[in-house]
Design a protein around this nucleic acid. Structure first.
Lengths: 352, 352
DNA sequence: TCCGTCATGGGAACCGGTTGCTACGGTGTT
DNA sequence: AACACCGTAGCAACCGGTTCCCATGACGGA
């Protein structure tokens, strides 16, 4: 079991050259590929490489203009299941295409987002993928437009993944999925069971993902000629605690409803627990639906009816469209569809 | 709303120097910090920097020996909740310490792991963190020992996070948590309720995490003078589908048990659904416990009794110990404790 | 008024690679 | 035997930064 004696410090191409008795250029050419080198020389070089356990410095190669650039993605928090799936898609596709991935989480802080994008620009990342919804304000559009320009001028590219598009003219690739459409279909399904008072557990009022789903909720009502009671639309965030708290509060306030539609499965999970705690059965007393179709949705009891979002596909597409883009091409904007997964948590309202 | 006209290509420090009418060294000094530069010069340089939207190339800085190196972590699959939490801890701590993070997922393929570590070495990463359990074979130890040497000789460092330690002598930092101890306490708790036939839903038989927990299961029995029926120990993987399938099979096979202990919460979730599908109540007919304390555990019905593992802390510690290590110091090996979280899924066995 | 000193900025070498161009030695041709 | 040609390897310049070392000019003191 001979083990290479730990050479104190990383060795350079010149060390290898010296050991093989050739010049650095020759080593580079042996390792690099195409250039003709005699078998004897190649052998000596390869042996020196092995003996020194040499690996060329990827950053030096990058600077010299060879080697694949890295890819960066920025998200709010990797522990959210839907974020994790997007991240997974991004990572897999990047790896498949031979790129390494830089990742950072902003913890929802816009300043961090700006800092990170600046760092990615310094890294000369091939593309920067911003993952997940956000508050869609004029300030957001302005700031993000600047990022896009700034990245574009550095030869990189901004990709918005599950995030609202900017004003036309911004050099940006957008991959979205249909929040409103999914919510519309889901709520239509709930209404079709006969429910008339449907509690909506939404997210922050300025958050695009939350808002899109809320619009779908409203649109589904109006399509049926219904006018939803505004007091049935509650706002929190996308955590299970928010769902839990909001539902407890609604129950305590004596709000009348026969179904709950949550903005995410996480929220639905918290809501379910709150309903159980109040002694209500699902879907006997109250129906419940979520959004995202995270793996756990089917293990809730009852199994959760929800909207499936192709998160992983979203991430993969973000990478592919960004990387395979031809520089002059027009900006792309993809909108992925979703579909409802009917399980056991939605039933007819109780007879009164 | 003036927007900088997208300068076709990234600008270099020499472009900035030319525009400011100074030399590249001066620009470097203005940006770099300490060296005294007159206010007038500084002003001209800063203006040029702003006008060109210049950011120094981080890779060039890295090569020149300044700038913080990046940190790399390698895991099996970011979508697993416990992996995601470790990743989160790693990322947060790295960011706090001013490092960027490279991430890659191996999808459980050892070859990918090797390739990635080689790439990280080429990137001159400050440390490479290998996350999550694995098969602990002689081949694993040999291979990983080689990685550790190889990274050490490149001035980097290997960190094993939630992964079995190597033979002494390998230059490696190990941060583990106590799988056996947690399982021991958990199973002791179950046995204390009066259960005598406890089904164990384990992972792959060579996987250290799965094995540690299995040992805890056995040890808890023996500590009570019990001799667990080997047919009650089942093996699958760490997915909810595995828990679902194994439980269905156990039920179909007519296995007798009054409690189920799953190797992870995901497995427990699948088991719970299978139990419900069979018309069994939890914990009335069968008690159930998991391991990991993922956020969803409390939203299962009944809320899952499980073992809390400080995954995020684990990731943070991995980064901190690796980065704050003084080069000559002895190798560290930390073992974090776990604790049982008692919820509603474990009760007394049914009277017979 | 002359000289020493200090503040400031530039030139050049270096970090670790790649690659265009050139020089050298050996062979095949006439 | 002289010449051209080709295969091979090395020198040097470059990628985009940093930093050591030195030159210059302004200033204050004797």
């Amino acid at each position: 079991m001979t083990r290479k004696s730990g050479d104190a410090s990383r060795s350079t191409i010149r060390d290898v050259a010296a050991r093989a008795g050739v010049s650095a250029s020759t080593v580079s050419r042996v390792l690099g590929g195409e250039y003709p080198v005699s078998a004897a020389t190649r052998g000596r070089v390869m042996r020196a490489v092995r003996e020194l356990d040499y690996v060329a410095d990827a950053r030096a190669k990058a600077i010299a203009g060879v080697g694949t650039p890295t890819l960066a993605f920025v998200l709010e928090d990797i522990t959210g299941p839907s974020f994790a799936h997007m991240a997974h898609g991004v990572e897999r596709e990047a790896t498949r295409l031979g790129h390494l991935c830089l990742v950072c989480s902003t913890e929802g802080d816009v300043r961090h987002e700006l800092e990170f994008v600046e760092m990615m620009r310094a890294q000369r990342a091939a593309a920067v993928i911003l993952v997940g919804g956000t508050a869609d304000t004029p300030e957001y559009r302005e700031r993000t437009h600047r990022m896009a320009d700034s990245l574009a001028s550095a030869g990189s590219r901004l990709v918005l993944c599950g995030r609202p598009p900017l004003d036309p003219g911004a050099p940006v690739t957008v991959i979205e999925y249909d929040n409103e459409g999914g919510a519309y279909t889901l709520v239509a399904h709930v209404l079709a069971q006969g429910h008339r008072r449907v509690l909506y557990l939404g997210g922050r009022t300025d958050h695009t993902t939350a808002l899109g789903r809320e619009h779908g909720y409203l649109a589904a009502h109006r399509a049926r000629g219904l006018d939803p009671d505004p007091s049935l639309v509650l706002h929190g965030d996308f955590t299970r605690d928010s769902g839990h708290r909001l539902t407890q509060q609604a129950l305590k306030d004596g709000l009348e409803f026969s179904a709950v539609v949550a903005a995410t499965d996480m929220v639905a999970a918290g809501a379910l627990t709150a309903l159980h705690e109040a002694g209500l059965t699902v879907p006997g007393d109250v129906s419940l639906a979520g959004y995202d179709d995270i793996p756990f949705a089917r293990d809730l009891h009852p199994a959760l009816t929800t909207v499936h979002v192709p998160y992983e596909e979203l991430g993969r597409l973000a990478v592919r469209t960004a990387l395979e883009r031809t520089p002059g091409a027009p900006d792309e904007h993809l909108l992925l569809g979703t579909h409802v997964v009917v399980r056991d948590s939605v039933g007819a309202p109780p007879a009164r």
